[in-house]
């Protein structure tokens, strides 16, 4: 038995399976995971790692285990999507921990959530005293949402009755030296226009010199070239080695 070959084979199986399963499971970011999603991820990952290196058990057994966890997660996702009640039962509900500057001790005790944790999460949000808080809600993913009292909120253009221009998403026109024709067509422009813009505005002959080109909703082109000469005003490193 050639262990190296077997581990290589199992590694490929585990890697590909994990890739497919996680891709199907969804786009949730690590920071948005609920506690259960987090445990789920660890278990699926650990099963995949056993599938690769634990040669004392047939790969099929590990693979079935991986598949069952994936299936259970998918079923749970579908059920929680369909039923709000089940969703609340599994994921829990957001809990109010500060109301009108007052800390809700009972709710915090029920969740075994410490005052120090609360103060820390408030500080991360830029709030250094609970008295500034109208509402603080602990979300199911463990993050704190804070609504400051109106007198402590940032001033916005709306408060000043100022008119603002529409700001949408910029569109990528060149990525890694390659023109994205689909995106160009989406904004009703063509390659000729882009090339002429590059040449006239920035004296760029070939789009392959461009690392990234974006077009914002104001029609302004942002271009980042590969070989740019940038003067570094301050060297932040304090030792001569690599950083």
């Amino acid at each position: 038995m050639n262990e190296t070959l077997v581990v290589i084979f199992r590694g490929i199986v585990a890697f590909t399976t994990l890739l497919i399963f996680t891709r199907i499971l969804g786009k949730q970011q690590i920071s948005q995971l609920t506690y259960f999603d987090y445990i789920l991820g660890i278990t699926i990952g650990s099963t995949a790692s056993s599938l690769t290196t634990d040669l004392s058990i047939r790969p099929w057994a590990h693979w079935v285990g991986l598949f069952i966890w994936f299936l259970a997660a998918i079923i749970l996702q579908v059920i929680t999507l369909k039923s709000r009640k089940v969703s609340k039962y599994f994921d829990g509900e957001p809990t109010i921990v500060i109301m009108n500057g007052k800390i809700m001790e009972d709710a915090m005790r029920n969740m075994r959530y410490r005052i120090t944790d609360l103060l820390e999460q408030l500080r991360i949000k830029g709030v250094f005293s609970p008295s500034q808080v109208e509402f603080a809600i602990l979300e199911t993913n463990g993050k704190l949402s804070v609504l400051k009292k109106s007198q402590y909120q940032n001033l916005t253009p709306k408060d000043m009755n100022l008119d603002t221009k529409y700001k949408g998403l910029p569109v990528e026109l060149i990525y890694d030296g390659i023109i994205l024709e689909q995106n160009l067509a989406q904004v009703g422009l063509d390659e000729e226009w882009l090339k002429s813009q590059l040449k006239n505005l920035l004296n760029i002959e070939d789009p392959s010199e461009v690392n990234l080109a974006l077009l914002d909703t104001q029609g302004k082109l942002y271009v980042d070239k590969y070989d740019e000469e940038v003067e570094i005003p301050v060297n932040v490193s304090d030792y001569p080695g690599a950083n």
């Binding site: 038995m1 077997v6 790969p59």
Partner: peptide, 15 residues
């Protein structure tokens, strides 16, 4: 036979 089944069998079975 061993070289054929090694990818799907467990270490223990083969040993």
């Amino acid at each position: 036979v061993r070289s054929r089944i090694q990818f799907a069998a467990s270490n223990g079975e083969i040993e």
